[in-house]
Computed example of a mutant assay.
Amino acid sequence: MRAERTGPLRLFARLRLFALLAIGGAGPAPAQPLAPPPLAPPAPPPRSLLGPDGPDPRDRPPPLAPPGSVIPPINRPDPRLEAALRARLFAGPVAASPAAAGDPDQTEWEQARATATRPVCADVGPLRYLHNRVDLDGDGRLETLAVVVGSYACSSGGCSLLIFRDNDGSLELVAENGLFQSPLTVISNRHRGWLDLTMPASLHGAPDGLKELRFDGRTYRPVPLPVAEGTSGPPGTVLLELLPLPFERLGRPLPCGP
């Protein structure tokens, strides 16, 4: 009789154990490792800066200041620039290289300089220079623009404007113009990747509209700029301006020493 009772009890215990094991096996599945995120597609290569007419203007930064503003000239001596100005203006033949040709509409004074020998600095009287820097070609390096004023550097048509670029630490002459009229303005138009410049034009010393300096791949060339009556030309940023000040307060002295 006791064996008959224990049989169902054992069977019940086994069924209960089986149920508990089944319930435990139905628990949450072990966590699966996270799949790595999908790789982003590779970035397209940068668009070439070189277009059919030189560097693409869309890849170039705008002027350093908005149109209508004035970038004050640098009011401190620059020995490297002074040496470059002296090397260009004095002690040697005057004939310009093709890469730095001046205005083709030269005055008699400019024509005389082109056929003569440059005097030494000490023989021309006091000279002063005004300069500024701006990235004209968008390569991240600043070009230097300088105006030299004085009896030797100026005539009835204007004064001497020289534009240099930084070439591995030395200043390389890009353009020279002996008919600079104030102010010199940089505008957003480009030629061959270089920003255009504008300045007043003159005819025998009298104002005669505007002219635009455009880079042709080697130097800046002047081009007459038609301006509608009652307008002042394209908006731009003034880089160099000869204010009505006494000569001794215009820019910095240009020393004659080495």
Rank of each mutant, 00 (worst) to 15 (best):
Y152I: 05
L203R: 10
S155F: 02
L162P: 00
A146T: 06
A201K: 08
P222K: 11
R165T: 13
S170H: 12
I163C: 11
G233W: 04
G205W: 05
I187W: 03
K211R: 15
G233H: 07
R214Q: 15
E241C: 02
S156M: 04
S156Y: 01
F180C: 08
L195I: 03
A175Q: 09
R214E: 15
N177H: 15
A175W: 04
P224V: 11
P234F: 03
P207E: 00
P224F: 11
D216P: 12
G150Y: 06
L210M: 14
T144N: 00
D216E: 11
V148H: 01
G193S: 12
L171F: 08
F164Y: 14
L197D: 07
G169Y: 05
R192G: 08
V227L: 09
L162E: 09
L240G: 07
R221S: 11
G217Q: 14
T185N: 03
G193F: 11
S160R: 03
A175D: 05
L161D: 01
R214V: 15
A201T: 02
G236R: 08
T237W: 01
G217V: 15
A228T: 10
L203T: 05
G209R: 09
P207I: 02
L195N: 05
Y220M: 14
G230P: 05
L225H: 12
L162Y: 10
L173P: 01
D168W: 03
S232I: 02
P226T: 01
G157N: 04
T198H: 01
A206M: 09
V238M: 04
S156I: 06
D168K: 06
L203F: 10
T231D: 07
Y152M: 06
